[in-house]
Structure formats: structure tokens, C-alpha cells
């Protein structure tokens, strides 16, 4: 059963990623991207990373995707121009894709993936991450808030017309 679900998630990721890449309507692409994000969250669960899966859903599906939809809806040419994406410079793109594929394959293929897998029981990781974050890595936690503060002020400043 778990194998079956894994392959369904795999199919969901690949199908929605293909929709994102080949879709003609940008809005449809953004909604298809939701399938990819949810599928990746499912993969995280299979990797025994439940906190990462929830974060993926909360931040990517709940936040980034909304920002992408906003980005399309706020463009000022939305009423005049066709909201479409088209493939330009296909040959250049093919070269880039093949190059990236080569890099990934040279990194992935030499490793013995199946032999190095040790089956693990499903454990929840949230409490463990929380305990480490609030004791051992407390400084990093507080520094993260400074990083977020910088992002917030930077975003607000850039979105403003007059600085």
C-alpha cells in the first residue's frame, strides 16, 4: 500500500510539474505548482521528515503560492496582454537542461542508493527539533528572527514607491 501511494505521489509531482512547464496559462501553471508542492510534502513524509512536510505545506502552499498568484494578478498588463507563457530559445534551453542533467546524473549515479538504505521506523520529529532549537541552538533561533526582520523591512522598502 505504501509503495502504491509513493508511486501515486511520484506521478502527481511529475504530472503537475509538466503542467507547470508546458501550460499555456500562467495562472494554471501556478495552480499546477500546488500539486508539485503537495507531492514533495508527501515525499518528505516518506523520508520520515514530518515537520519538514508540514513546513512545506504551510510555507510553500500557503505562502509562496499566494505570492505567485498575487504577482500575476498585480501585473498592470493583465487586462491587455495575453497571460501566457511561451517557450523561447528552445535550443539554448536544451543545452542548459542537458548540462544540468549531466551534473545531477554524475552526482547521483555513482552512489549505491539501494544498498545504503537502512529501514527506519516512523518517528515524529517535531518534539526533537523543538527541543534542540530551544536549548542547544537557541542563538540560531534568535538570529533567524533577525534574518526575518531584515527580509520584512527589505520587502516593505522595495514594495514602496518612494524609499
Amino acid at each position: 500500500m505504501a509503495d502504491f501511494i509513493f508511486w501515486i505521489i511520484w506521478a502527481l509531482i511529475v504530472a503537475s510539474a509538466a503542467l507547470v512547464a508546458f501550460g499555456n496559462n500562467l495562472i494554471h501553471s501556478v495552480f499546477a505548482l500546488m500539486g508539485t508542492f503537495l507531492g514533495v510534502a508527501g515525499i518528505y513524509i516518506f523520508l520520515n521528515a514530518d515537520f519538514l512536510a508540514v513546513t512545506q505545506i504551510v510555507v510553500y502552499v500557503g505562502g509562496i503560492l499566494v505570492l505567485l498568484v498575487f504577482g500575476i494578478m498585480l501585473t498592470n498588463k493583465i487586462s491587455s496582454a495575453q497571460i501566457s507563457q511561451s517557450s523561447v530559445q528552445k535550443w539554448l534551453g536544451l543545452i542548459v537542461v542537458l548540462g544540468v542533467l549531466t551534473i545531477i546524473l554524475t552526482a547521483v549515479l555513482p552512489h549505491d542508493w539501494v544498498g545504503s538504505i537502512t529501514p527506519m521506523a516512523f518517528n515524529e520529529t517535531v518534539a526533537g527539533i523543538g527541543k534542540l532549537l530551544f536549548t542547544e541552538y537557541l542563538i540560531l533561533f534568535e538570529i533567524a528572527s533577525v534574518l526575518l526582520l531584515g527580509a520584512l523591512i527589505g520587502a516593505a522598502t522595495l514594495a514602496r514607491k518612494e524609499l
Binding site: T55, V66, L133, L152
Partner: peptide, 20 residues
Amino acid sequence: FYVVALIFIIFDIEVVFLFL
């Protein structure tokens, strides 16, 4: 709306830490 969305994402990430 865009500024509101940007600020929302920052606090969205904050909520992730609050879960922990």
C-alpha cells in the same frame, strides 16, 4: 495587496517556529 502578502509570508514562517 502585495505588501500585505509579503508581510504575511514573514509571519507565516514565524508560525512554523511557534509550532515547534
